[in-house]
Design a binder for these strands. Structure first.
Length: 271
DNA sequence: CCCCAGGGTAGGG
DNA sequence: CCCTACCATGGG
């Protein structure tokens, strides 16, 4: 059974949304066809975008309504934010380039672990590490895919359990993250509704979670759209186009703006 | 051999 | 507060 979503790429662009560096458990199966497979927690999805629709394969209407509609943030209208951002010349160009990006509503624990892995690392390698992490600690879903491991299944793991995953020095950070969550020293569910600065302070108690990783976790795992991750790429954009600082009138949705800029500079050669 | 990748920590000024 | 060395790993 297929679920068909009527939309266009300027409204929701699957390829840009997946390729813009916010998630890591997906593969392009056929570039020309805009077809992808992805994992979200323990759910597998194959989907494909055409001019007028997105096809969700093997997906019931209930699956779409209960899982994927929310995950892909389909029901949010991004137009008001894009209109606001377009008063800025650089952002206007970015939105013309990749205005169909949606901010995924990922699992907070998965996002946190993923962006700890991301530090001083590149996207292809991050994807490989997370795949190996899921293969070792997750549940087998089908021939090739594993669920993202739960906190419960990870409780008590030691640094040695992480060898062979190519985490490098980040293995200590993963262990510390799991310990602090398993012991309930840090409660992810409570971070969702915390004032943003308190949420930041709490997440940064975890070893290996500094400002950048923290902002990514908040934006992609907790849907805190005001979070503004500054990585090496965004740093270059800020230095070149926003020497007076990033416009304060965008701050409520700064994370979305940041994501347009990030994908724009990485995928075009404006530098 | 170098540099870089969705950076952070520890240590010293 | 700032600055810097260092941190594993793999690709270019």
């Amino acid at each position: 059974m297929e679920y068909i979503l009527k939309t266009e790429k300027s409204i929701f662009n699957v390829a840009d949304t997946l390729n813009c560096g916010q998630c890591f458990r997906f593969l392009s199966t056929n570039d020309a066809d805009n077809e992808f497979v992805l994992m979200f927690k323990n759910k597998f999805l194959r989907l494909k975008q055409t001019e007028n629709e997105v096809i969700f394969f093997d997906t019931t209407t209930d699956d779409f309504n209960n899982i994927w509609c929310d995950y892909f943030d389909i029901s949010t209208n991004y137009s008001p934010m894009k209109e606001l951002f377009s008063t800025d010349e650089t952002l206007k160009k970015a939105i013309e380039f990749d205005g169909g990006i949606h901010i995924l509503k990922q699992d907070n624990f998965e996002a946190l672990i993923s962006f700890i892995v991301s530090q001083n690392n590149n996207i292809p390698r991050i994807k490989g590490i997370i795949r190996k992490f899921c293969e070792r600690f997750g549940e087998k879903i089908d021939k090739e895919n594993y669920s993202f491991p739960t906190i419960k299944s990870l409780t008590g793991i030691k640094k040695d359990d992480l060898s062979g995953i190519s985490l490098g020095y980040r293995d200590d950070y993963i262990v510390d993250c799991i310990e602090k969550i398993a012991s309930k020293e840090i409660k992810l569910d409570e971070i969702k509704s915390m004032p943003i600065d308190e949420a930041r302070k709490t997440l940064q108690k975890i070893k290996g979670v500094g400002p950048k990783v923290c902002e990514c976790a908040l934006l992609f795992g907790f849907n805190r759209l005001e979070a503004f991750p500054i990585d090496t790429w965004v740093k270059k954009v800020l230095a070149k186009y926003y020497q007076e600082g990033f416009p304060v009138e965008f701050e409520k949705y700064a994370g979305i703006a940041q994501q347009y800029l990030f994908h724009y500079i990485r995928s075009s050669n404006i530098f």
